[in-house]
């Protein structure tokens, strides 16, 4: 597991690229034998303000990549990325905007 991020602010718009280490294993959904394990909720906050919620499925590629942008940001602001998977695992990371 692990969350990598590149987060930059330009003219108050933050652009963030996330790479999350996760198998995103569909298992029986795609006729496989491995246990199904995939992120089904990811939430991003800018300070206390919600930026978006994403609900992935096992049809998101292994080690999910997500790029997004939001307004009203400045360098040094913190964002929080948190994900949860269908097996109850989760991870949370604070990222500083550069």
């Amino acid at each position: 597991m692990g969350i990598k991020a590149i987060a930059k602010v330009k003219k108050s718009i933050a652009t963030v690229k996330l790479l999350v280490k996760h198998p995103m294993e569909p298992g029986a959904i795609a006729g496989g034998k491995k246990p199904t394990k995939y992120i089904n909720h990811m939430t991003v906050k800018h300070g206390d303000k919600l930026v978006f919620d994403m609900y992935p499925t096992s049809a998101i590629a292994k080690n999910p990549y997500i790029k997004f942008a939001f307004k009203g940001a400045k360098k040094g602001d913190m964002i929080t990325v948190e994900w949860f998977d269908n097996t109850g695992a989760s991870e949370k990371k604070d990222i500083k905007l550069k």
């Binding site: 930026v51 978006f52 590629a61 790029k67 942008a69």
Partner: peptide, 11 residues
């Protein structure tokens, strides 16, 4: 305030 534009990779 969120720009409605997302990139990802799908199966």
């Amino acid at each position: 305030g969120t720009i409605p534009k997302f990139s990802t990779r799908i199966k």
